[in-house]
């Protein structure tokens, strides 16, 4: 069973639909025991960082998530919350990745909204994906680049499009909204 963490905001349904289409059983949940028992965990994110962290604390998920051993995928805000700090609401986050989440400078249109390609990809999630492929992004804050960066995207400045450390994976883009190539990334994760 694939646990999809529910935290009250956002569109978890499209993630569930995408995962089910690939033939996996899902459960949308914030129950600690269910998440602990799941084969894999997906943490989709839209919304605001400090509100989301408050909710995770309320449910005890801030303590549970860093202890999980199964493959874990944070999407969009989900990836950002795996970093150590976000400028959005000056929020202390989960600290899996030793990186800061910063606001895009207002030198171009913000949010970064739409389809963009990745550069310097080096993660098992990208099998069957080429450098010309595009993924759907929508965000006003970005994860810095660091040693856990497994691909970059360039908008205003280069930032971490994907991150990985041990069993923790993150994508800034929305694989569930990135057409067939996005499904391929999800499938690669689900088959890890």
């Amino acid at each position: 069973m694939i646990a999809i963490i529910d935290y009250g905001a956002g569109n978890v349904k499209s993630v569930e639909n995408a995962v089910r289409k690939l033939g996996f059983e899902t459960k949308i949940t914030s129950n600690l025991e269910e998440i602990k028992q799941a084969d894999k965990v997906i943490f989709p994110g839209v919304g605001e960082a400090s509100t989301a962290m408050k909710y995770l604390k309320l449910k005890g998920l801030d303590v549970l998530i860093p202890t999980l051993k199964q493959a874990f995928l944070g999407i969009c805000l989900g990836q950002q919350l795996l970093c150590k700090f976000s400028e959005e609401g000056n929020t202390k986050c989960l600290g899996i990745f030793d990186l800061k989440v910063k606001q895009f400078p207002a030198t171009d249109i913000v949010p970064h909204m739409g389809w963009n390609n990745l550069i310097k990809t080096k993660t098992s999630l990208f099998e069957g994906v080429s450098d010309e492929d595009n993924f759907y992004f929508v965000h006003s804050y970005y994860c810095e680049i660091g040693e856990n960066t497994t691909s970059e995207c360039d908008y205003i400045l280069p930032f971490s499009a994907t991150l990985q450390k041990d069993n923790f994976y993150g994508t800034q883009f929305h694989p569930e909204k990135s057409g067939d190539i996005g499904s391929k990334i999800l499938e690669n994760f689900l088959k890890l």
Binding site: A9, G10, N11, V46, E48, P111
Partner: peptide, 8 residues
């Protein structure tokens, strides 16, 4: 925007 995020 406050409840669901600016992106939506």
């Amino acid at each position: 925007a406050q409840q669901f995020g600016n992106q939506c």
